[in-house]
Design a protein around this nucleic acid. Structure first.
Lengths: 153, 153
DNA sequence: TATTGTTATACTCTATAACTATA
DNA sequence: TATAGTTATAGAGTATAACAATA
């Protein structure tokens, strides 16, 4: 079925919300296709990558960074623990906090995950110049920053 | 809890996938906050907007444009029919297809929906120049186009 | 044989409320 | 009183398979 040829999509194509939706699906499809069936979710790679750079970080801090509510961090981190990639350790200072650390297998998974994500981003931005890629990141960050001004905390 | 001050987020902040995720959440939060509780979903505004510009378009064509599988178009359009905004009419030519048309109330809802979406986009891009906004749209479109090259149909 | 609309269903992702233990 | 982690649960959102009617 031809669609874009016969249909007036001018309004739709000019919407950032719509293009953002399409871009997210495009990224998700490419990642799923190339990372294979037993892959970690992107957000889980983000998690172990952040734990690698910040050993002992708490689930609350990670959730706040990644936009995952505390309740959902439990199963997300729990899956990483079950896979033997992450260890929960009681904090010496604040005994409410559970520090997150990578196991040796977690170190490997983090390195592999970053590689897979990196290749995925390279693939998707292959038609963009380095300047375009920086511009895209900057523009997206400015959208995110703007939302702090238009909606209450 | 301070987070970004004590945590190394350099890797994360450089990922387009992550910024896309944050930007999508930012847009969604702003829309939900300003459009009120009885709002149509953005994709539903896209639907009636597209029907307004292309009266008689089929659900299959719309789904293909909006990235919604046929099965889910049923409930999506069904809700618009229940709200009295959209009418399903049998096609004269191909008797498999159901043509979608707006009711008078649908015309009003489409106009209002476009206004709400338009103000939402204006608000989110208030710190962007017109050129920046065009650049963002162009870069997102190029990501979407790229995915057609990296993943099979 | 392919496509449209449809039903049924399952899976992923996200959000809320309430509990506990600490602070 | 406020916060970290947890549990349970509900709600969006998305995906697949199968069917009838039609092309």
């Amino acid at each position: 079925m031809r669609v874009r040829d016969d249909v007036d999509t001018e309004w739709l194509d000019g919407l950032i919300g719509y293009q953002l939706r399409c871009a997210t699906r495009a990224m998700s499809t490419d990642y799923a296709w190339h990372a294979g069936p037993d892959r970690l979710r992107p957000v889980q790679v983000h998690l172990i990558g952040m734990i690698a750079d910040n050993p002992g970080i708490s689930a609350a801090a990670l959730g706040s960074l990644l936009g995952v509510v505390r309740a959902n961090m439990v199963t997300l981190v729990g899956d990483l623990v079950e896979r033997g990639l992450v260890e929960r350790r009681a904090s010496d200072g604040d005994r409410r906090v559970v520090e997150l650390h990578l196991t040796p297998a977690g170190d490997e998974a983090a390195a592999l995950g970053r590689k897979v994500i990196g290749e995925h981003e390279e693939r998707m931005t292959a038609r963009l110049s380095a300047a375009d890629r920086r511009r895209l990141l900057d523009l997206l960050r400015r959208l995110v920053a703007r939302s702090a001004e238009t909606t209450p905390p």
